[in-house]
């Protein structure tokens, strides 16, 4: 085997792990990392995005539009959940664990009862390509590109737009923002919807590659929380480096000893990071600036 194909395969595996970590985590980074709501229903927002995407695709919508539909529906569900449940619990972060866990159980079982135990998939688009001895799925590169685009979009949203500045101000010192005339309830609502929509986007993007069942959100949740905990409070400066570090650990360990060691490596890496950097990677990166 020549060096070039070995390098490409390592990069591909890194990109694949990176995309999965970043896309599963970015919605949670907004809701948990930034807003401090421990959202155990994160997986169910992902499931919602995936189900809406596949249902729209079955109804005849082209896949990119179907994914957009999944994202929007998840965001709207996010608005509703924020309005009914989360809004009343911002002062009680520990209670959000119980409330969102309850929501997650209701969503999983409700989907099972309403839509049955599984749904037919749509198939992965774009086919495959060959490098050296290995063949790869093109769609996996699309996922990697989407992860980069989402990270770029989040950076732009929270740093360059008026909404982003107001959202960060509201979450840091809500009373001051309110005194300056910001409708903090609306901002909280929109930020939560943004997180839910990102979760829906992750579900929509992964829907063609996965089995569609009511419990599918659970397969994202471990990676999502691990990435956000390692990343810390800043959405961009946390999720991007955390995704990169963990993807290296995971893909290296998995190629060396298999999936089990990949998972062990991921969890050991988390223990190290939060032991040494309690505020996560973004806390470390931002220390010089404050």
């Amino acid at each position: 085997m020549d060096i070039a194909s070995l390098v490409f395969s390592s990069l591909y595996q890194f990109g694949d792990a990176f995309a999965f970590l970043v896309l599963s985590a970015c919605g949670l980074a907004v809701i948990f990392g930034m807003m401090g709501v421990i959202n155990l229903a994160h997986g169910e927002f992902i499931m919602c995005g995936a189900y809406v995407t596949v249902a729209s695709a079955h109804a005849g919508l082209p896949l990119p539009l179907a994914i957009a539909a999944g994202t929007i529906v998840s965001a709207l569900v996010g608005v509703l959940v924020e309005l009914v449940v989360i809004r009343h619990l911002y002062e009680r972060p520990l209670d959000t664990i119980v409330a969102t866990w309850g929501l997650s159980l209701i969503a999983t079982q409700g989907t099972l009862i309403a839509l049955g135990s599984s749904m037919q998939g749509v198939g992965t688009p774009f086919g495959s390509f060959q490098v050296g001895n290995y063949s790869y799925s093109v769609y996996r590169l699309v996922l990697f590109a989407s992860a980069l685009a989402v990270l770029g979009g989040l950076y732009a949203l929270f740093n360059w737009t008026r909404f982003g500045v107001i959202a960060r101000a509201t979450i840091q010192v809500p009373q001051m923002a309110a005194a300056l005339g910001v409708d903090t309830r609306l901002i909280y609502s929109l930020t939560f919807a943004c997180g839910a929509g990102l979760a829906g986007l992750a579900g929509g993007l992964y829907a063609p590659t996965m089995t569609l069942v009511p419990t599918m959100g659970a397969t994202f949740i471990m990676e999502a929380f691990v990435t956000v905990v390692v990343g810390g409070a800043d959405v961009f400066l946390g999720t991007a480096p955390a995704g990169a570090v963990l993807a290296v650990v995971k893909s290296a360990m998995t190629s060396w000893q298999g999936q089990l060691f990949g998972q062990i490596g991921l969890l050991v890496a988390v223990i190290f990071v939060i032991r040494i950097l309690p505020k996560g990677l973004s806390g470390f990166l931002l220390r010089e600036r404050t």
Binding site: S9, F20, T219, S251, G258
Partner: peptide, 19 residues
């Protein structure tokens, strides 16, 4: 290769098989 229950991403395992 033995896969822990609940794992849903197989890129690396697929490559191991091709190898």
């Amino acid at each position: 290769e033995f896969i822990p229950l609940g794992v849903s991403q197989f890129s690396q395992s697929i490559q191991n098989i091709q190898k």
